[in-house]
Simulated assay, not measured.
Amino acid sequence: MADFTPIATLEGDARFDAYVARPEGDEAKAAIIVIQEIFGVNAGIRTKCDNWAKAGYIAYAPDLFWREQPHIELDADVPEDFQQALGHMQKLNQDQAIRDIEATIKAARVAVNGGKVGLVGYCLGGRLAFMAACRTDGDAFVAYYGVGIDGLLGEQHAIGKPVLLHVPTADHFVGPDAQKAMHDGMADNRHVTLHDYDGLDHGFAAELGARRDEDGAQLADGRTAAFFAAHLA
Rank of each mutant, 00 (worst) to 15 (best):
L165F: 05
A178M: 09
F130Y: 08
T193F: 05
L164C: 12
V167N: 03
M186Q: 13
L194T: 08
D198R: 04
H157Y: 13
L165Q: 06
D184K: 14
D188T: 15
D184W: 04
D171G: 12
Y145T: 01
L194I: 13
D196Q: 07
V142F: 00
A132D: 03
V142K: 00
M182V: 11
A143H: 06
V163C: 14
P168S: 04
Y145C: 11
T169A: 05
A170S: 14
F173I: 08
L152I: 02
D150A: 14
L128T: 01
R135S: 09
R135D: 07
A187I: 07
A170L: 11
T169Q: 08
A143I: 07
D171L: 07
V167H: 02
V192Q: 11
N189S: 13
A133T: 04
D188A: 15
Y144Q: 01
A158I: 06
H157S: 15
D150W: 00
V163S: 14
P168H: 02
P162N: 07
A140K: 10
P162V: 03
L165Y: 03
E155D: 10
Y197W: 08
M182A: 07
P162M: 10
D137K: 13
T193L: 15
A129C: 12
V167G: 03
G160C: 13
K161T: 12
M131F: 01
R127S: 08
V163Q: 11
D184V: 09
